[in-house]
């Protein structure tokens, strides 16, 4: 069982993120759930590219020639930056919604409907 522990952690993180998105009514908690889901996807991509005993794909003072796959790491870098941009935009939405409606509860926002 232990050899795919990273994938089990990924599944746990994804389920936690999805549960937060489905069950919580607070907008900021929903956005935190989206961030946790993003982290699960990033960890999944990184774990797919791991080779047994490999080092980071950087040749400066490299200890060995056996390296992990580099493309998943590069794409995860892209994904992290896009996650930061999305988080900034979502939290700004939360601030604006709080200023307009006075609440961040999605049910109350739906009832207000100005």
């Amino acid at each position: 069982m232990l050899w795919n522990l990273p994938y089990i952690v990924v599944v746990l993180l994804a389920v936690i993120g999805l549960a937060i998105i489905f069950l919580k009514r607070n907008l900021i908690k929903i956005f935190l759930g989206v961030s946790i889901l993003t982290s699960a996807v990033n960890l999944f991509i990184i774990a797919l590219g791991y080779r047994e005993g490999g080092i980071a794909p950087i040749y400066t003072y490299a200890a060995s020639e056996k390296m992990v796959m580099a493309t998943p790491q590069a794409l995860t870098l892209t994904s992290i930056v896009i996650g930061v941009a999305t988080s900034a935009l979502m939290l700004s939405f939360a601030v604006i919604i709080y200023k307009m409606y006075g609440t961040v509860n999605v049910d109350e926002i739906r009832e207000l409907k100005e």
Partner: peptide
Amino acid sequence: IALDLTFGDP
């Protein structure tokens, strides 16, 4: 799906 994957050998 996760139980089928093997870690460390792509």
